[in-house]
Design a protein around this nucleic acid. Structure first.
Lengths: 248, 248
DNA sequence: CGAGTACCGGACCGACGATCCAGTACTCGT
DNA sequence: ACGAGTACTGGATCGTCGGTCCGGTACTCG
C-alpha cells in the first residue's frame, strides 16, 4: 500500500506546543522545524506523572493519558520506561524526595526522628495516591537516603542490634500505616464519609458500644492523633535507651 | 424468617446479605430443590476470591477468572456484587474475620492488645495481597468488631479522650504498616530480594554507611522486629497510664 | 398452568498495558 | 560533506480487562 508510505493519515499528531506551525500536509513541509521540546526525559515523565496523580488520582493515570499530557504518543513513554509500574516506583520515590534531610545530626535524636516522621507523613499526604502505592519494596535512592538518616539518628541515640532494628521498623511502619489510613479516608469527600461512618456506628451501637461512645470520627484531629501516637512510640524507645547499659 | 420470598425494591439489585451475621439458614428454607449447583451466593464468591487471591495474587484476579473458578459466566457475578471493588472490600473483611476475638476481657490489657495485634498481623500476612489492598476505609463488620474489642480493651486499661484515640490509632497503624511492608517484600522471592537489596546497600555503602552497617535484611527476623516494636509502643502507652491521673 | 421473579450468560463496548515496526531527527567519524 | 549509526517517536494492533445490554432459563407461587 502506498498510502502507508505517505504516512499522514488524517490525524497526524505532530503539532508543537503552540499548535501553530500549520496542520499542513507533511510533504509540503520541507523543514519540519527542529525538535519542539527537550526530547522527553525520564525526569519529565516522572514529574508529569506526579502531577497527574495529584490531580486525577491513581485510577485515572494511564500511559495514554500521561503521554497526552506530555504531548507525545503513549508508545514513546516505553522508550524511557519499561512498564507502568516503573513510573509508579519512580513517582513514589520522587515524593519521598520532597522530605528535607538535614546535612548533619543535631544530637537531639527525639527532635530529629520526630521531625523526619512528621515530614515523611506530610509528604505522603500531600500526594494521597502515594500511600496506596506503597505496597512495593521501597528501594529508591530518595527513600534510602531518608532511611539512612533515620538509622543514623537512632544509632547516634545509642541503639544497636535488635533495638535499632525494632525502632526503625516501628517508626517507619507507623508512619506508613498512618499515611495509608488517612489517605484512604481522604480519598472520598472526607466530611461526608466520616459523618456516614459515625452515623453507622451510632445506629449499630449495640454491636459496637465502645466505638459508638469513644470512636467518633467527625471532628477527629488526625494530626494530633499522629503526634500523640508517635510520642508513645518515642517514649517506649527512650525507655529502652534509659534501661539499657551505656555503650562504649 | 424467609427472606428469599421478599420482592424487595423492584429495580435495585438485591443481594443476599453477607457477613457472619446468621441471616436465614439455607437448610431451614421451605424446600431447597435448588439447581444443580448452589445458586451462587455472595459468600461463595468472596470465599473463592480469597482463595484465588491467595493462589495467584491481586494482579491476576479478574472477574472473568473468578467466574471461571466458580463455574459461571463473568456476567453472573454482577448480579451478586456491584463492582470488582466490592469483591475486594468483602475479601478484605473476610481476612479480618479470621482473627479470633475473645468473648470477654481478661483485665490484662497488655496481653489482650498484644495478642490482637499479633493475630491481626498474622491474618494479613497469611493473605499477602490483603495488605496491598488496605488503601480503603475499613468499615466491614469484621473489622469493626475487632476494632471495638481493641477500643474496649484500651478503655478498660483506663484510657480516655485523646489518649485513647492516639493509642488505638497508633496500634492499628503500626500493625497495618508492618503487614504492608512485609507483604511488599514477601511478594517476590523473599530471600533473593533481600540478598539483592543487601548487595546494593553494600555496593553503595559510601552513600548509606549506617544502613550498610546496621541495616542488613538477610536473616532479619520480621517477627522479632514486630514484637519488639510493639513493645515500645505498649511501653509508651503504659507510661501514659502510669503518669495520668486515675479516672473515676 | 401461566405469570412472575430470581438468576444466568453470549455478545458487546470502550479503555487499558504493552509490542511491532516503520519511520524521523540528531550525532559523529571520516 | 556525507553516510552510517544512534536516539527517539508514533500509528496500528494484540490480548485482556471491567462493566453493560438484553434475551434466556429455572424455579416459585397463585
Amino acid at each position: 500500500m502506498d498510502m502507508s508510505a505517505t504516512g499522514e493519515s488524517g490525524t497526524g499528531r505532530r503539532a508543537p506546543r503552540g499548535g501553530g506551525g500549520g496542520g499542513g500536509d507533511v510533504w509540503l513541509r520541507p523543514r519540519p522545524a527542529r525538535r519542539q521540546a527537550p526530547p522527553l526525559t525520564r525526569d519529565r515523565i516522572v514529574a508529569e506523572a506526579v502531577a497527574a496523580l495529584d490531580e486525577e488520582g491513581e485510577a485515572r493515570l494511564t500511559m495514554r493519558r500521561l503521554a497526552e499530557r506530555l504531548g507525545t504518543g503513549s508508545t514513546t513513554l516505553y522508550w524511557h520506561v519499561e512498564t507502568k509500574d516503573d513510573v509508579l516506583d519512580l513517582a513514589l520515590d520522587a515524593v519521598f524526595g520532597e522530605v528535607a534531610v538535614p546535612a548533619e545530626h543535631s544530637g537531639d535524636w527525639r527532635a530529629e526522628v520526630g521531625a523526619l516522621a512528621g515530614e515523611w507523613r506530610a509528604a505522603l499526604l500531600r500526594h494521597p495516591w502515594s500511600a496506596a502505592v506503597l505496597g512495593r519494596p521501597l528501594m529508591g535512592p530518595n527513600v534510602l537516603a531518608r532511611t539512612e538518616y533515620l538509622h543514623a539518628a537512632l544509632v547516634g541515640a545509642g541503639l544497636h542490634g535488635p533495638h535499632l532494628t525494632a525502632a526503625a521498623y516501628g517508626l517507619a511502619n507507623y508512619v506508613i500505616g498512618s499515611a495509608m489510613m488517612q489517605a484512604a479516608w481522604a480519598s472520598r469527600d472526607e466530611d461526608e464519609a466520616r459523618r456516614a461512618a459515625d452515623e453507622r456506628l451510632r445506629a449499630e451501637h449495640d454491636r459496637y458500644p465502645t466505638l459508638a461512645e469513644h470512636g467518633h470520627l467527625v471532628g477527629k484531629d488526625w494530626d494530633e492523633a499522629f503526634t500523640h501516637g508517635l510520642r508513645y512510640l518515642l517514649d517506649g524507645i527512650a525507655a529502652q535507651l534509659a534501661s539499657g547499659p551505656a555503650h562504649p
